[in-house]
Computed example of a mutant assay.
Amino acid sequence: MDDVKAAVKGGSVYACGGGGWVDHGLEIGGAAVTIGQPKLASVDEIPDDAIIITTTAIGAPAGNEWEMLGSDYIKAVKLLMDNFDGKVYGVMTPQNGMSSSINGWLPAAALDLVVVDATGDIRAHPTGKMGSMGMASRLDYQTIQVVVGGKRSTGSYLELVVKGTPAKTSNILRTASDMSGGFIASARHPLPASYIKKHAAIGGISKAIDLGNAIIEVESKGGDAIIQTICNKTNGQVLGVGEVSSIDVHYSGAFDIGTITIDVPGNPFKIHVMNEHMAIEDSKGNRLATFPDVITTINAETGAPVSVGHLKKGMKIAVFHIHKNYIPLSSSVTDRSVYPEVEKALGIDLVSYAFA
């Protein structure tokens, strides 16, 4: 359970305003270490031909009509295994987050699989394509994607298995998430470990756990100590501190899209949001940070990362940033095909900054 708590705390920094919920992460992680003993494996411990699948949750963190049970995560993995002609060896997550760092721990414990110490992206991101490790634009790979979940009381529960190219099937899953209430458990992309070793962000889970443990060690010292520890541990920095002055974020098609303004004295920041914080501009329109940089809003008084859905006007926020040079980058974020739909939704340029 100590690992669960650390993964959630460290994952919350890499969540970049999204990546699920702290309570959900503790609940699902707690269930995982109660029913079994999840095993974290480095990529060096895994045979090249072993099949690894990605487990995650799909949707918008600010949504409130969803229902995902622990059994939904397990059922999604079982359905993929039933529809895959081969043996699945382990699971990995496409991103870190408040709950997404431990997405695969429960099905791994229940089904005797390993959890791979790798992520499709070290930070959280809005689309499944951004965590697909370069598979999004490939037409020669036929994937399997599964979603399970939804609020039973409203008749929104769904089980769906789709096969096809990653690009087409990812769009179908996003629609299913919206229909189920805004968030749904998923399993997808059976790939050999040899591909994971070349294209994933290696060590993504252990980095979250290590950061979480460092945070736990200084929590009794208050918010300033926590923020300083986060900066020291990650080579990150606080770009500015100010009060939230406006929140213009709306739900659309299982995405939370819009802007948040932080009234940093003398130079207000505008944060562009698509589920997660994707870019920061100052009052003169200068770009200060852009995905795949880590961009996190942290409560300046408590030191706790704050998700998009929990930001409130008047809240004092430290805007935290890790430049992409200081994080492991996967093929997900160097795949130019994953950017256009996000750029269109946000109405800003990402590619020229992301690839600078």
Score class of each variant (00 low, 15 high):
T127G: 01
T127P: 01
T127A: 05
T127V: 01
T127H: 03
T127S: 11
G128A: 06
G128P: 04
G128D: 09
K129C: 00
K129A: 04
M130D: 03
M130T: 00
G131H: 05
G131M: 02
G131L: 04
G131T: 11
G131I: 06
G131Y: 06
S132Y: 00
M133W: 03
M133Y: 08
G134F: 05
G134M: 10
G134S: 11
G134R: 14
G134P: 04
M135G: 04
M135P: 00
M135K: 09
M135I: 09
M135L: 15
A136E: 10
A136W: 02
A136P: 08
A136D: 04
A136K: 01
A136N: 06
A136S: 14
A136F: 13
S137T: 01
S137N: 15
R138V: 12
R138H: 07
R138N: 03
L139R: 00
L139A: 08
L139H: 02
L139K: 07
L139S: 15
D140I: 10
D140C: 09
Y141H: 12
Y141E: 14
Q142I: 07
Q142C: 00
Q142D: 05
T143R: 03
T143Q: 12
I144G: 06
I144P: 05
I144W: 02
Q145N: 06
Q145H: 01
Q145T: 10
V147Y: 03
V147K: 08
V147P: 04
V147T: 13
V147C: 14
V148Y: 02
V148F: 11
G149N: 14
G149P: 14
G150A: 04
G150C: 14
G150R: 11
K151G: 12
K151D: 09
K151R: 15
R152E: 12
R152F: 11
S153V: 12
S153W: 07
S153I: 11
T154K: 15
G155I: 09
S156M: 10
S156H: 15
S156L: 15
Y157F: 15
Y157S: 13
Y157E: 10
Y157Q: 11
E159H: 12
L160D: 03
L160F: 07
V161W: 04
V161H: 02
V162F: 01
V162S: 09
V162K: 04
V162C: 10
K163D: 08
K163F: 11
K163H: 11
G164A: 06
G164D: 11
G164I: 10
G164P: 15
G164T: 05
T165Q: 13
T165K: 03
T165E: 02
T165V: 07
T165Y: 02
P166N: 01
A167Y: 07
A167T: 06
A167S: 02
A167H: 05
A167C: 04
A167G: 00
A167D: 12
K168Q: 08
K168H: 06
T169F: 00
T169I: 08
S170E: 05
S170H: 13
N171W: 04
N171E: 14
N171V: 00
N171P: 00
I172Y: 03
I172S: 07
R174V: 11
R174Q: 07
R174S: 06
R174P: 07
